[in-house]
């Protein structure tokens, strides 16, 4: 099995060349298999996926680690003022913060849950809105397209960086769900643009015309005939959007407009750290930020791999 795949890696044959391929005895691959193979051939994407998996398990398992290693992993409501502001040691792997004596390592683990949740949750919202919006605009075109895209322009013109903290402040008392929703409501426009532009060309294709001629209802053409063909760019934008929103969330929470204690995210773990920067306790700033960098790096690599894997034009 493995051998045949490796062999086929050199001589990929598009699905549907039918009998010829059977004769030569080369296995045919479905789109899903081809995508999988291309993704695994990307030099870093598979390692990034592994790394992200480990991070997710580490973060979401935090309450469990707390039970298993109560001396090393503390719940966010456990802290001792006596330990405040100590550097990394065996007891506190990433040191403690300077005000309350929270163990930074524990906060990074616990906080990762919300950071990752907000990244993914917001993009799920963004994809749902962006796909419906962009598909409608691209499929129906004309006046509807013009109106819908004007609205998209508006959202793209006011920097999300300013709107997000504003919205978070306005809708006060930020729960992770609320923040994810706000981020999602502000990051759909770029997705809708991508979907619209692929729909503009897809709807002119013969298979779409055929479906229309057969009397297939519009909704079904959009979701069953066109959308699967536009899935590649959407998945890539979804992935990269997660990375974007994790960074944005960190910034907003760092400034105190997003997630706030007693809830922790990577950003809110850093809140207050700048005030004591001059004291030189580097660990407080360094480690939560590194968590963001590593996560975002993994997600960007995965996005890269997906781009290569899902683009049917690249056949290597």
């Amino acid at each position: 099995m493995l051998d045949s795949r490796q062999l086929a890696g050199e001589t990929l044959i598009p699905v549907g060349t039918g009998a010829d391929a059977e004769d030569v005895g080369v296995k045919q691959f479905s789109f899903r298999e081809l995508t999988y193979q291309r993704f695994m051939r990307h030099p870093t994407a598979k390692w990034a996926l592994l790394g992200l998996g480990i991070l997710i398990v580490a973060c979401y398992g935090a309450p469990l680690w707390h039970l298993v290693f109560p001396n090393y992993i503390q719940a966010p409501d456990q802290f001792s003022l006596l330990d405040a502001g100590t550097g990394p040691s065996l007891r506190h792997l990433m040191g403690t913060d300077s005000y309350n004596g929270h163990d930074i390592f524990s906060l990074v683990l616990y906080g990762g849950r919300f950071s990752i949740f907000i990244g993914i949750g917001s993009m799920v919202v963004a994809v749902i809105i962006g796909v419906s919006w962009g598909a409608t605009a691209g499929y129906f075109g004309h006046a509807l397209d013009a109106v819908l895209m004007r609205v998209t322009d508006v959202f793209l013109t006011v920097p999300a960086l300013l709107l997000v903290p504003l919205a978070a402040r306005v809708f006060g008392e930020a729960s992770p769900w609320k923040i994810a929703l706000i981020f999602g409501l502000l990051s759909w426009p770029s997705i809708s643009r991508i979907v619209r532009s692929s729909f503009l060309s897809l709807r002119e294709m013969q298979f779409a015309e055929a479906a229309r001629a057969l009397g297939v209802p519009n909704r079904r053409i959009i979701f069953r005939h066109l959308l699967p063909n536009a899935v590649g760019p959407i998945v890539v934008a979804f992935t990269l959007g997660i990375a974007n929103n994790i960074v944005l969330e960190a910034f907003v929470s760092f400034l105190g407009f997003g997630i706030q204690p007693p809830n922790y995210s990577w950003g809110s773990t850093l809140a207050g750290a700048q005030g004591v920067l001059v004291a030189g306790n580097w660990w407080w700033i360094t480690f939560p930020g590194l968590a963001v960098v590593v996560t975002v790096l993994c997600i960007n690599f995965i996005g890269d791999g997906l781009r290569d894997a899902l683009d049917p034009k690249i056949i290597r």
Binding site: V247, A250, F254, L277, V293, N300
Partner: peptide, 18 residues
């Protein structure tokens, strides 16, 4: 470029300050 692209601007600023 991969690392720089993945870095939150505000955190980079803090690290440079540090």
């Amino acid at each position: 470029s991969y690392v720089g692209y993945s870095m939150p601007t505000f955190w980079l600023g803090l690290m440079l300050l540090l």
